[in-house]
């Protein structure tokens, strides 16, 4: 027979864990929090570029190498939804967009993808957050989000 206090503690723990799981489903479902994907590798991902799919949808194909990201600067209008594809040419790098929910690994021979929406204008720094050698601390890029008329 379980002690009454023990039973209450187990019940509270189950309720709290249930709350966490519901919160995760809420973020994924109602708020459409994107989950990072690993895509099948293709040589075309080694060409760094920015592509516009329609007025507010962009794709940026990043190539990380010691010690920079290409493209180093990308211009995006406010309110755009951007698919980020990241791969590496040499070693494992990190890919973190400041103030955004983006935290990817750039892996040689692999492609990681996520989608992010830029509703606020500004300069969003991209930094490498996986130690990759002596120039690691200088490895960064910028996503410049400005008003469409100023682009």
């Amino acid at each position: 027979m379980i002690d009454v206090f023990e039973r209450r503690i187990i019940l509270v723990s189950i309720l709290v864990m249930g709350l966490f799981i519901l919160a995760i489903f809420y973020a994924m479902g109602a708020r459409k929090a994107d989950v990072t994907e690993c895509l099948p590798y293709d040589k075309t991902y080694e060409t760094a570029r920015v592509e516009q799919l329609d007025k507010t949808t962009y794709q940026i194909f990043y190539v990380a190498r010691m010690w920079n990201f290409e493209p180093s600067v990308a211009y995006i209008p406010v309110g755009s939804e951007v698919d980020l594809f990241v791969t590496s040419n040499d070693v494992v790098h990190g890919f973190n967009v400041y103030n955004k929910n983006v935290n990817l690994m750039a892996v040689p021979g692999g492609v990681t993808k996520t989608t992010v929406r830029f509703d606020q204008p500004g300069v969003y720094k991209v930094v490498c957050h996986e130690y990759c050698g002596t120039g690691h601390q200088n490895m960064q890029a910028e996503i410049i989000v400005n008003y469409p008329k100023k682009q």
Binding site: A23, A27, R31, A33, D34, N101, V116
Partner: peptide
């Protein structure tokens, strides 16, 4: 702590 980080990340989507 958990929901503090959770809502911070939701804001950054």
């Amino acid at each position: 702590i958990w929901f503090g980080i959770y809502f911070l990340m939701l804001e950054r989507i």
